[in-house]
Design a protein around this nucleic acid. Structure first.
Length: 569
RNA sequence: GAUCCUGUAGCUCAGCUGGUAGAGCAUAUCACUUUUAAUGAUAGGGUCCUGGGUUCGAGCCCCAGCGGGAUCACCA
């Protein structure tokens, strides 16, 4: 496959070939043993130390017989000082003059051996005695520069390019890496928190015959050997509960779920949730557990419980506020919806000017009111409790009010972060709830749930009382790293696939017309050809230019006129 | 799905009322042995997203399409 190379790429490929010609392999196989990482070297910087480092060559500043550059490794940047006579003590100055100055480029991987020292301007640096080529880069990176005031120039900021080429984003935009390190730390803190309590990390199927545990449109696929449809999971809840049935008393999973729905700054088709189920507990216990966990995650990440998110200062110090959904609606709308039927709720929605449609049941209506009028008000961490039963088909009925369930969601910065239940373990009730969902489905709510008969069978064998909680990891990380877009916390957010189409050699109509005329005579005067082609000026112009580029025609200038030659087959 | 914004050199971006396609960085050549957005000189580099249209003439105006972003809608 031929690739159109830019001038700079050709220069780099040429340099690569020259290195080989000199007996220097630009992509060596051998291990390169470094003694330090950039960060540890700078942390405990002493002059006169012999060090070996490996990394990417950045910001090369050649000044005749001496040069400065930066070496970027996974931990940061160190300045290197490459001096001709230090690098080449003998007569042969090629390693400096040719290899370093001409054949190495910004972005190449090199290893350096040398001595630490401090420059006149006070910059800790490495005086390079030996330089090893570790990997050539034939495509130039975007050049991002930061001045001494910390202003970034020519920032690589186009979101499309950043997300499509995250590898480039990670190299040139330093803060991007820290977001993903934070993401890993958040998950690590949570794991530690669970493992200390002897809960078991498990894995459950991603390919499911019935996409249960939530209401969402699934991705569908097909298993050839079994000749059955399979779905990418929209949730893992029903499988984790099966494990509680099986006798585990605490299980958790960091799970990728998949939902075939719209994408925006808080939704990606695949996303990560952490779900945990603990036997013999209820949702009150789970609230304590959740706030303890979140407080700790924040402390371990930031060293404090208070963080800035956008314009808001959010404090994760325990305990979090707890408000029932009905009280919340009363507080923000003045309507007491307790005990209302569907028609009364519709009246309330009308009064509050909330858009509704006939497919919505009681639960959905209440959800709309809460989502419209209440949710956004909860900036500080707040547990909203006791959701209406219609919205929560997997959740146990409230011990005091059969219209409600023992459910809570944790709201932070106006958005839902976690969702938890006292899990429904009554198999008869569970079956009835699924059937109600099915009825809703028939009303047109295309997200109501499928019935998973095997899950019901498991419940019939008996599940201990338990409480389960799920946290959207992407959204939690967004919150904790002060990012407002989910794409900033996913390495590779979903994008429309890029077209790497090779340039079509197919000619369009006007190009064909010109070629046909020209082929007959193999060469003719340009004026005559233009006249004969009978094309508009624009079409002629585009057509003849394109043919020239494709190498099918060549224009020759003679004394009398311009001659067009056909050079194709 | 709707609306608005956007697509120009390797990168970041200018481009006036429609009149020869520009800058900085990067690249190449030269100079320069402690610089750090290194500096100075010279040079090369373009499918102005794609396809139509209007026009003597389109990067610019019109139509259609494609990519991306934002705001909605949708979304426990």
């Amino acid at each position: 496959m031929s690739v159109n190379r830019s001038e700079q790429e050709l220069v780099r490929i040429n340099a690569l070939e020259q290195l080989r010609a000199m007996g220097i392999e630009p992509f060596p196989a051998a291990e390169f043993k470094a003694s330090h990482k950039a960060e540890e070297l700078l942390e405990d910087f002493k002059e006169g130390k012999e060090v070996v480092l490996a990394g990417r060559l950045m910001s090369v500043r050649v000044m005749g017989k001496a040069s400065f550059a930066e070496l970027l490794d996974s931990t940061g940047r160190v300045q290197i000082y490459v001096n001709r006579d230090e690098l080449c003590p003998g007569e042969d100055k090629e390693a400096y003059n040719t290899v370093f100055k001409k054949l190495l480029d910004f972005g190449d991987f090199i290893g350096v051996e040398g001595t630490t020292f401090t420059t006149q301007t006070g910059e800790p640096s490495i005086l390079v005695k030996k330089l090893t080529v570790l990997g050539k880069s034939i495509r130039p990176l975007p050049v991002v520069k930061t001045d001494d005031q910390g202003n970034v120039h020519d920032k690589f900021s186009d979101p499309e390019l950043r997300y499509r080429m995250r590898y480039v984003d990670l190299i040139v935009n330093e803060n991007v890496k820290s977001t993903f390190i934070a993401r890993s730390k958040v998950m690590q803190s949570m794991r530690n928190f669970f493992n200390e309590r002897d809960y078991l990390e498990v894995e459950t199927p991603i390919l499911q015959p019935i996409p249960g545990g939530a209401s969402a449109r699934p991705f569908i696929t097909h298993h050839n050997a079994l000749d059955v449809p399979l779905y990418l999971r929209i949730a893992n809840e029903l499988y984790l509960k099966r494990l509680i049935v099986g006798g585990f008393e605490g299980v958790y999973e960091f799970a990728k779920d998949f939902r075939n729905e719209g994408m925006d700054r808080t939704h990606n088709p695949e996303f990560t949730v952490m779900e945990i189920y603990v036997a013999y507990k209820d949702y009150n216990w789970m609230m304590d557990f959740t706030e303890e966990m979140i407080e700790r995650v924040c402390l371990e990440l930031h060293g404090k419980t208070s963080i800035t998110v956008g314009k808001n200062e959010i404090n994760f110090q325990r305990p979090f506020k707890r408000v029932s959904m009905i009280d919340s609606i009363k507080e923000f709308t003045g309507h007491d919806i307790s005990g209302m039927n569907e028609d009364e709720l519709r009246e309330v929605c009308k009064d509050l000017k909330i858009d509704i449609d006939p497919s919505m049941g009681k639960g959905k209506l209440i959800d709309e009111i809460f989502g419209e009028k209440c949710e956004g008000n909860y900036i500080q961490p707040t547990f909203i409790t006791d959701y209406p039963i219609e919205m929560s088909p997997l959740c146990k009925k409230h011990r005091e009010n059969p219209e409600l369930t023992e459910r809570f969601e944790l709201m932070v910065n106006g958005k839902e972060i976690a969702n938890a239940y006292s899990e429904l373990n009554d198999p008869i009730d569970q079956r009835a709830r699924f059937e109600e969902q099915l009825a809703l489905n028939e009303r047109g709510d295309d997200e109501a749930m499928f019935i998973d008969q095997d899950f019901l069978r498991a419940l019939e064998y008996g599940m201990p009382p338990c409480s389960g909680m799920g946290i959207g990891i992407d959204r939690l990380v967004m919150l904790l790293t002060n990012n407002e877009s989910i794409q900033e916390v996913l390495f590779f957010p979903q994008m429309r696939p890029e077209k790497f189409g090779e340039k079509k050699i197919e000619l369009n109509e006007s190009e064909k017309a010109i070629v046909d005329l020209l082929k007959a005579k193999m060469s003719m005067p340009l004026d005559e050809l233009k006249l004969a082609a009978n094309l508009s000026n624009k079409q002629w112009d585009k057509g003849i230019k394109a043919l020239g580029k494709l190498g099918l025609t060549k224009v020759e200038k003679t004394d009398s006129a311009l001659l067009v030659h056909y050079t194709g087959e």
